[in-house]
Simulated assay, not measured.
Amino acid sequence: MRVLIADDHDLLRDTLVAFLGAEDGIEMGSAASFEEACERIESDAPYNLVLLDYKMPGMNGLDGLETALGMKGGQRVALISGEASREIAEKALEMGAAGFVPKTLPAKSLVNAVRFMAMGEKYAPIDFMTAPDPEEAHPLAKTLTRRELEVLEGLSAGKSNKEIARDLDLTEPTIKLHMKTLYRKLKVNNRTQAAIVAHDAGLF
């Protein structure tokens, strides 16, 4: 069994490679960008599974998935992501992805999911795929844009503006602008109050 892990997050990539590489009968390949992943797909022996990070450099979201799926006459490709929505996961599966793996899964579950997909099965965690979207969970969410909801989720998790900016691939000034809009829409004055409103509304 051959598996290619493509992710620009060094720790996650190295953890998966170490876990899977320790298993009997599994050969591992790794890449830190979509371009590097494509080069390996073209030049290496065929992989049983190619696992692509949804947000890594060069990926361009589902465009990268479509490209990878069509390379070398087609192979099994799955997405891994720390922030993609259920809608993205559903679209990926509709396009023919072998599965969708949230980075919130414990390491052992991640490894099991990869093995499962590499053996020819489809994978997507039931709790993630059946959880209600924030827009459906509470009327308050309907007043916020998806980006504002993402910022609010980061805020509710206790992340700093810098951490939220990094997670969403935005600048800190942009996050601050979203914060101001959030405070106005939620009728609050600070981060703590915003987090309390989000929690009470059951958004996260």
Rank of each mutant, 00 (worst) to 15 (best):
M1K: 06
V3P: 00
L4T: 01
D8F: 02
L12A: 07
D14V: 03
V17H: 05
V17G: 03
A22G: 14
E23I: 11
M28T: 10
M28E: 07
G29T: 06
S30A: 14
A32M: 06
A32R: 11
S43N: 12
L52M: 09
P57K: 06
G58W: 01
E66H: 12
A68K: 00
M71F: 03
M71T: 02
G73Q: 04
G74D: 06
I80K: 01
G82S: 10
E83C: 08
S85V: 08
A89C: 09
E94K: 13
G96V: 05
P102G: 02
P102S: 04
K103T: 11
K103A: 07
K103N: 06
L105Q: 08
L105G: 02
P106Q: 10
K108C: 07
L110H: 07
V114P: 00
G120L: 05
K122N: 13
K122D: 11
A124E: 00
M129T: 03
P134C: 08
E136R: 11
A137V: 13
L140R: 07
A141N: 07
T143C: 05
T143K: 14
R147L: 15
R147V: 15
R147P: 08
S156V: 06
G158C: 11
K159E: 13
N161R: 05
K162M: 13
L168Y: 06
D169C: 10
T171Y: 10
I175L: 05
L177D: 13
L177F: 10
H178I: 07
M179Q: 14
K180L: 13
L186C: 04
L186G: 03
V188S: 06
N190A: 09
R191Q: 12
A194K: 01
A195Y: 00
I196W: 00
A198C: 11
H199R: 14
A201M: 08
